[in-house]
Nucleic acid binder design. Structure first.
Length: 442
RNA sequence: CGGGACGUGGCGCAGUCUGGUAGCGCACUCGGCUGGGGGCCGAGUGGUCGCCGGUUCGAAUCCGGCCGUCCCGACCA
């Protein structure tokens, strides 16, 4: 037995090193030439596409439509909402030259799109009949971050930003809360991430918002991760950008707005929460590949095993599973087991000469290590059993993450107690405060 | 942006103290044997040692500056 090569650092030993190594070894992302820029590799992008598809369906189901707005924002637009300029100024990237000419006004690469979208909205909204406006955009944004980590904090990142306009304060508040719920559902149901939802303290609010609602996840190292936020902007932007409409009584009103966002950062959260010493662990609903078939052949049985494995592959693919088959002849089965576990594929199907003889296959689940996680299943029952197993894994991943969160959530009855806890421990603290459940990281 | 560490083939590292023609493991390519938890043998490819300048007959190694990365803190999706 040879020494494992390029061994993954243990998560418990050095979580940061583990994370960085894993991102690259699992081919999720690679560093770009400009600080904080990354290539999201096909496997990482496939993950994003599946998250996107899930969220997008939820947006559509709540009446939103997608659109696209310009990447470049004139400086004068940004300046119209005072809090926004102040907050984003230190991390803006500027375009000052077009072609060979110096520009008269410099253009910011969007750090978020409120200001440019609001400018359009001031034209699009004239009457109460134009409301509500429920638009979302999938795009990239850029913030000149000093300290970056793949997915968790990058200079350029992908996200979605919803921007809505409403007639009344009640409606914008309802929308902001509704989208927080949409995010929450996506976290629980698709990502198996038990987030804590609440409201941000005034100091942590989005610049220009009157209230920021948030979904916070608890990472494996006991730190909190802001996973998604939903802002009630009130009339702050409509006043700055002159978004007004005539109501039923022919009175001119300033509109009420929301914005809400969810970024590729959650991929980092997914890695941190579910990953272990053997690598990634992708929840089945999100996994680009639900199950991978590893044929185990030797000598003269090679041809037959290969044929049977391919047959099984097609069978399961036609049954609607996202399948992969590993026909690589250079590596041993053991190597392949480790490789697919590193990538977090939820289920591995082993098929060897003995299995073919017995009319069975081996189902090995990623979330339970070694022999414990293996079961022999008759070929005739394979598809049904695989379907069940994927469901079980999804459920069990959420359960385990929830248990971890509970174990690291402490209760404080006073501010003193709260301070004491965050001095000593990491994790969530529930404390009486502004009426909403609050959290902090230690 | 403060404190610390580090930049040598794709990845992980040795060599730096004590200057003398760049090395190891893995990965990669070719051939063969293998194959139920990271197999073995043989033959190969690949590096202006982060960048710029200085010292020197000679610099990965010594000196100065810059850039970048990582960790701990402050800030953020």
């Amino acid at each position: 037995m040879a020494e494992a090569v390029e061994k993954l650092t243990k998560k418990s030993e050095d979580p940061s090193k583990w994370y960085l190594q894993l991102v690259r070894m699992a081919k999720l992302a690679d560093y770009g030439p400009v600080r904080g820029t990354f290539a999201i590799r096909p496997y990482g992008y496939a993950l994003w596409e599946r998250i996107q598809a899930d969220l997008d369906a939820r947006f559509k189901a709540t009446g939103h439509q997608n659109a696209y707005f310009p990447l470049l924002i004139p400086e004068s637009y940004l300046k119209r909402e005072a809090e926004v300029v102040e907050a984003f100024d230190p991390e803006l990237a500027w375009v000052t030259i077009g072609g060979r000419e110096d520009l008269e006004e410099r253009l910011a690469v969007r750090p978020t799109s409120e200001s440019i979208i609001c400018d359009f909205y001031s034209n699009w909204v004239q009457s109460y009949r134009d409301l509500p406006v429920l638009i979302n955009q999938w795009c990239n944004v850029m913030r000149w971050e000093k300290v970056t980590r793949p997915f968790l904090r990058t200079a350029e990142f992908l996200w979605q930003e919803g921007h809505t306009v409403h007639a009344t304060a009640r409606e914008s508040r309802e929308e902001a809360l509704r989208m927080q719920r949409v995010y929450r559902d996506c976290f629980y149901e698709a990502l198996a991430l038990p987030v804590l939802d609440g409201a941000k303290s005034p100091s942590e609010r989005f610049p220009g918002a009157i209230e920021t609602f948030t979904c916070e996840g608890l990472m494996g190292d006991g730190r909190a991760l802001q996973a998604a936020t939903s802002h009630d902007l009130g009339q702050n932007f409509s006043r700055a950008f002159d978004i007004t409409f005539l109501d039923e009584n022919q009175e001119r009103q300033y509109a009420h707005q929301t914005s809400w966002g969810f970024s590729t950062r959650v991929i980092g959260g997914l890695i941190l929460v579910h990953g272990d010493d053997r690598g990634l662990k992708i929840p089945p609903k999100l996994a680009p590949t639900e199950a991978v078939i590893v044929p185990i052949w030797r000598g003269e049985s090679k041809g037959e095993v290969r044929r049977e494995a391919e047959k099984l592959y097609i069978e399961l693919k036609e049954a609607g599973f996202r399948m992969e088959i590993d026909l690589d002849e250079e590596h041993s089965p053991g190597y392949k087991f480790n490789e697919h576990e590193l990538r977090g594929v939820p289920v591995r199907i082993e098929l060897g000469p003995k299995d073919i003889e017995n009319g069975q296959a081996v189902l090995a689940r990623r979330d339970v290590a070694g022999k414990e996680g293996k079961t022999f299943v008759p070929r005739s029952e394979l598809a049904g059993r695989l379907r069940e197993l994927l469901g079980e894994i999804q459920e069990s991943m959420l359960r385990r993450a929830t248990e971890f969160r509970e174990e690291n959530t402490r209760r404080a009855t006073s501010y003193e107690e709260f301070k004491e806890i965050i001095e000593e421990k990491r994790g969530f603290v529930l404390a009486p405060g502004t009426g909403t459940r609050r959290r902090r990281r230690g």
